[in-house]
Design a protein around this nucleic acid. Structure first.
Lengths: 239, 239
DNA sequence: AATGGCCAAATGTCCTAACAAAGGTTGACA
DNA sequence: TGTCAACCTTTGTTAGGACATTTGGCCATT
């Protein structure tokens, strides 16, 4: 455990990162007691508030459990991991499933519902795109998105070669908050065709409004997923 | 704005609650600049760390946006509200829709999958319950749950008159973390009957593993909702 | 009129210090 | 031997101060 005071990375974050690593390495096991705050601070020559903040960061992630009078312990493994604000493309790429995108539509439109969701004037011109997402040759999802005019320069090529969120990232945009609404319904005829749905199989539908750190709208999406191949996993917490 | 120093409620929380109220009242509008930390601390005779912590609590909730060098402002309204770890019963009660529960099953069983989800030994006896949830006369969901032996004393009456989470609360248990997995599928014949599903309509299915603050399993559930009447709303954030 | 540098304002980081509250342990007393 | 109070350990809350970093605007110079 080493703290670099000349680094621009805050001390509490350095500490928290190293402790996180120790947990994911298995050097610290669930249930293991933790050195107490004061001792840890003394050993590393840090102040107690700094150590506390590092520990708090980990409690917020669900990695540690603190109990007054007892001490701090590593949390049950089941509680780890947090749902991230990622996209389907990222999810598939991480699993090595070779995501592929076919752009079905790409145009500038006005749309009352989408503009309202993005908190913009109904007359605002939006970039509307519809994409078919495949894993290998298997269709997975039909994704319809609306973007504010600031991102009207996103090209067809960009969307087909990477994902929407990657395109936004290269523009320095980073969604940090999203409202999602998830439902189940039967596919439309167009969806049946694109997703190659046979027989009576539903789709998992999701609408999403995403915002950046300042609360500015980034994206509004209306996606439908083949129910057979897709579930949404999430972690909810009340801390 | 008044701070009660004799109250057992921490000062930072008192402040944060009053500021939250001011925002939901509309006294503070989205985009409104916020009094700076130092001035606020001086005016209320609090220390800066205390004020900072109150503000941080609100930033974590998505109510405020802080920008170094600029100041703190009230966040875009769309970004407010966080998905809570609540139950369907609570949701319906809050909307005044008179939730009603019919207990279909209530017995002690062993179940490998449920025990594994709860991180318990496969042989552990679990309380298995199946409930039909209605809003007025309209069926909404079939809910199957498994509970660790510690809650084996939950009675039929308790489950029919209140909700599962209320029953757990009276036992001093409070779920703070849950993993949920959401999917769409066609209903089983039993579900079609109970939920009075006609024609080809899917159900929204959700499994949930809930844990308390110490990481101990509280509940494992497998629920199916009438897709026509139910959507799951959630807020994801990356802070 | 444009541009560069400087300054003020605000949040971010870090420290020391003290007391409060909660849970477990131990020892004295009945 | 059993019970309860006192004590110890640990986290929780609050204070006050110092310096760093970022941002935006102002002012002087070109």
């Amino acid at each position: 455990m080493s703290i670099d005071r000349s680094s621009p990375v805050p001390l509490y974050h350095q500490l928290s990162e190293q402790l996180c690593a120790a947990i994911s390495d298995g050097r610290l096991q669930p249930g293991d007691p933790f050195e107490n705050e004061v001792a840890l601070a003394g050993r590393l020559s840090l102040s107690r508030p700094t150590v506390r903040r590092a520990i708090q960061e980990m409690v917020d992630k669900g990695l540690l459990v603190r109990r007054r009078g007892l001490g701090t312990t590593v949390a049950n493994r089941k509680v780890h991991r947090r749902v991230a604000l990622s996209s389907l493309y990222d999810d598939l790429a991480r699993e090595g499933r070779a995501p592929r995108t076919v752009l079905l539509e790409h145009e500038i439109v006005t749309d009352d519902a989408a503009a309202a969701a993005l908190d913009l004037d109904p007359q605002t011109p939006l970039l509307a795109i519809v994409r078919l997402r495949l894993a290998g040759d298997a269709p997975l999802a039909v994704m319809r998105n609306w973007l504010p005019p600031a991102y009207g320069d996103i090209t067809r090529e960009e969307l087909e070669s990477t994902g929407l969120y990657a395109a936004l990232r290269t523009r320095g945009v980073h969604a940090v908050v999203a409202h999602q609404s998830i439902s189940a319904r039967m596919p439309t005829p167009a969806e049946r065709k694109h997703l190659r749905i046979r027989g009576t199989q539903p789709v998992l539908a999701m609408t999403r409004m995403a915002f950046d750190g300042a609360g500015t709208a980034v994206e509004y999406g209306d996606h439908s997923y083949r129910a057979e191949d897709y579930t949404i996993d999430l972690m909810v917490d009340e801390r």
